[in-house]
Design a protein around this nucleic acid. Structure first.
Lengths: 231, 231
DNA sequence: CGTTAACTTGAGGGCCTTCAAGCTGTGTGG
DNA sequence: CCACACAGCTTGAAGGCCCTCAAGTTAACG
């Protein structure tokens, strides 16, 4: 899994109710707007209530690397010390809970179990980042895309094997360490091989999950005669 | 910076001395031996006292991805939930402090400030992993190697611009998302261009730090006539 | 319905990989 | 102390995968 999300921290179970009574400010961000930029003062942490966001870094030559796609339950803003090491942009309409950094100490003091949960959640994100590092560093373009689509499907919990793919081709490319043309080509390949079907530009259906899983794990999937059709 | 290390957690400053009085077991590991394997039960966290370790993942096809090189101050074992998501192998002789996972809750309860420090340290490692992801995903082989050598130099704090490079070429390659032949070639390139000098196989000197810094940031460094010599 | 951004698809080239051969350096046993 | 063996490193040549550049198509939005 290369996408952050899932583990919801239970902010309502603090022993004396203090944490529950200080739930932080809820903020709404429209799609493609920024929650914070690289280098911004790190005044708050953010926990996603709903929607998708991307965390990214910009290189001096203008290239960008998306370091994570985050959905409900993800904590954003713990990386880095002084300022935000990443920029954060809403991929879809986004609802987040903002928690002032200076309140972190009080939360840990009032509710040590919550502190342990927080450490666990950051640890999960670290593990996810390492998984993504493994994919970007050691996989082919096919493997990267297969892994990514499966991860999106796992997080989305769509029905009938239909899932949202809310990000642009270029954003997927910036996440996977590819160019958007390569992503586009491979998406077309996957459709030609009947592994996926694009219902619309940002909505797909898994036709052959096991083929994708096999590919994601490094296996080579035979085309079963489609090569002849293509020729 | 793409290498974990540095920030030392102050385990001696707990308010009632409890944490300081439970310093955890010190363990020594010889070079190239394992501290833990992928999938091992996650009974302890480890803080490096001295030496270098690598954290890695193995793919089904036998390829490996090194997800981090860790030196003094790094905390290892926080990623993943049930078992260790990474394997950990000593690169040099290694001294670690082992802290039972089940004691984590007690530590956080006794010393909330320490909990905040721990969250910060894991956050730093997350940031480092994201930086590495950026390097592996968006940099050329030259840029990757330049960034890596500078990071090693920063952590090593050698004198006279001489630094240890304790890992093998293949381990550097597995970290940078390259093949060891490519690393070897680029190392030779860098020497030919008089940017570094290998004192011995595992010991180098920075001859032109600014050229490496320029390259690491994406600039193209002219060869100043060395191309003619090479031809 | 027009404009523009995003996407698709093709052709060609470059960077890194793959495969192969030779070299270096370290440790071990005679 | 030297010879040998083997793992790690270097270097070369050829090929492949992905990138770059370019043109055309589709989707989104006012």
């Amino acid at each position: 899994m290369c996408i952050n999300g899932g583990a919801i921290i239970d902010f309502d179970r603090s022993p004396d109710g203090w944490v529950a009574n200080h739930p932080g400010e809820i903020r709404q961000i429209a799609a493609h707007n920024h929650l914070f930029f690289e280098g911004d003062a790190r005044n708050s942490l953010y926990i996603i209530e709903s929607g998708w966001a991307k965390l990214y870094r910009t290189l001096v030559d203008g290239q960008r690397q998306v370091v994570g796609f985050c959905s409900a339950g993800s904590i954003m803003g713990l990386e880095g010390a002084a300022g935000h090491a990443n920029g954060c942009e809403a991929v879809t309409a986004l609802k987040v809970r903002a928690i002032p950094v200076k309140r972190l100490a009080e939360i840990c003091a009032r509710d040590p179990q919550l502190a342990v949960q927080l450490i666990g959640q950051v640890g999960n994100q670290l593990g996810a980042a390492q998984a993504q590092l493994t994919s970007v560093g050691a996989h082919s373009a096919d493997q990267k895309l297969a892994t990514f689509l499966l991860a999106v499907a796992d997080v989305s919990q769509g029905r009938d094997a239909e899932f949202d793919l809310p990000m642009r081709r270029s954003e997927m490319a910036e996440f996977l360490g590819l160019r958007f043309e390569t992503v586009s080509r491979k998406m077309s390949d996957f459709q030609r091989r009947k592994w996926i079907k694009m219902i619309s530009m940002y909505h797909f259906r898994l036709l052959n999950r096991s083929a994708l899983e096999c590919l994601a794990e490094g296996g080579v999937v035979e085309e079963a005669g489609y090569a002849m059709l293509a020729a």
